[in-house]
C-alpha cells in the first residue's frame, strides 16, 4: 500500500473514531438522564449543546458591534453567543500564545546561557534551577497578588510555566549535541556565536520538539488555571462561572472548544517543527517491526 493511501486510510479511521465517540456521548445522554439541578443534565446531548447551551454563551458577551449584552437588558441571540465565544477565545488565545512565546524564548536563551561560558552558567543556573522547583499552580495566588487580574499577570504566569520547561529542555538538548559537530565547526573556523547559530540551535531542534509540545500543554494548563482564579474574561472564566451554577452543558461546550483549539495548535506546531527538522529522518509513529 502506498504511503498516501495509507495516510488517507488513517484519516478515515480517525474520523470514524471521532464520530463513534460523538454517537457514544449521545447514547450516554439518553441512557443517563440524571440532572445536576432541574433542567441541567449531567450528560447533555448534542441537541442541548447546539441550541440552548450555545445560546447561553450570549450571557458572556460584553457588548460592542451594536449587540447589547444580556447583563444590560439585551436578548440572548446566536449572534451575541458567537461574538461572545470569539471574544473570550481571543482573550484566552492571545494571553496563551504571548505568554508561551515569551516563556519559550526566555527559557531557551537562559538554557543556552548555561552552556555558553562558566560565567554565564554561574550567573544563570542557580537562580533558574531554584525557580524550576516551584510548583506552577501553587504560584497562581502569588501572581494574582502581584499583578491582580491584569493581562500582564496571566502572560507572566504562562511565561513562567513555559519558561522553566524550556530552560530544562534546552539544557538537556544542548548536552546531547554531538561533540563531533562542534569540533567540526571549530576546525572549519566557526566563532562561538556562529557555532551556536549554525550548530547548537539546529542540533537541539529535534529534541526541543517534545519540550515544545509539553510546554504548549503546560501553557494551556497555566492559562486556564490563571483564568479560573482571577479573570473577567476568557474560556477559563466561562468554565468557572458555569461551575458555580452547575451549568454542565456550558462547561462541556467550552471543553469541546478547547479540544478544537489545542488540536489545531498542536497540528500547526507539528507541521511547523516537522518542516524545520525535515533534514532529520523523522521518527515514525509505529514500531519498525509493525511497518
Amino acid at each position: 500500500m502506498s504511503a498516501a493511501r495509507r495516510m488517507a486510510g488513517e484519516r478515515w479511521v480517525a474520523l470514524g473514531v471521532l464520530l463513534a465517540l460523538a454517537v457514544l456521548w449521545q447514547v450516554l445522554s439518553v441512557l443517563y438522564p440524571v440532572e445536576a439541578q432541574p433542567g441541567e443534565p449531567m450528560v447533555p446531548g448534542w441537541q442541548v449543546l447546539a441550541t440552548r447551551t450555545l445560546l447561553s454563551m450570549a450571557d458572556y458577551w460584553r457588548g460592542g458591534f451594536g449587540v447589547t449584552p444580556v447583563s444590560e437588558g439585551g436578548q440572548r441571540s446566536y449572534l451575541a453567543a458567537m461574538l461572545s465565544l470569539v471574544d473570550n477565545s481571543i482573550d484566552t488565545l492571545v494571553r496563551l500564545y504571548i505568554g508561551w512565546t515569551l516563556g519559550a524564548v526566555a527559557g531557551l536563551l537562559l538554557g543556552l546561557a548555561v552552556s555558553w561560558s562558566a560565567w554565564t552558567r554561574r550567573l544563570v543556573d542557580p537562580g533558574a534551577q531554584f525557580l524550576r522547583t516551584l510548583p506552577l499552580l501553587a504560584m497562581v495566588p502569588l501572581f494574582q497578588l502581584w499583578f491582580g487580574s491584569y493581562f500582564i499577570g496571566k502572560i507572566a504566569f504562562v511565561g513562567y510555566g513555559v519558561g522553566v520547561l524550556w530552560f530544562a529542555g534546552t539544557i538537556n538538548a544542548v548536552g546531547n549535541v554531538a561533540q563531533i559537530h562542534i569540533d567540526n565547526a571549530r576546525t572549519l573556523g566557526a566563532g562561538k556565536l556562529h557555532l551556536y547559530r549554525t550548530v547548537v540551535l539546529p542540533a537541539i531542534l529535534p529534541e526541543l520538539r517534545s519540550t515544545l509540545f509539553v510546554s504548549l500543554a503546560a501553557a494551556w494548563g497555566a492559562e486556564l488555571g490563571a483564568e479560573y482564579l482571577g479573570a473577567q474574561s476568557g474560556l477559563g472564566y466561562i468554565i468557572v462561572f458555569a461551575q458555580q451554577f452547575a451549568y454542565l452543558d456550558r462547561m462541556f461546550l467550552v471543553a469541546l472548544l478547547l479540544i478544537v483549539y489545542t488540536s489545531l495548535g498542536f497540528a500547526a506546531f507539528d507541521r511547523l517543527t516537522a518542516w524545520m527538522t525535515r533534514w532529520s529522518a523523522r521518527a515514525g509513529r509505529e514500531l519498525p517491526a509493525a511497518r
Binding site: 563531533i180 559537530h181 569540533d183 567540526n184 565547526a185 576546525t187 549554525t198 550548530v199 539546529p202 542540533a203 531542534l205 527538522t277 533534514w279 532529520s280
Partner: peptide, 12 residues
C-alpha cells in the same frame, strides 16, 4: 580535519 565518525552537519 576529517574525522573518523560522520561529522557532516545533517541540518545543512
Amino acid at each position: 580535519m576529517v574525522f573518523q565518525k560522520d561529522s557532516v552537519f545533517p541540518w545543512f
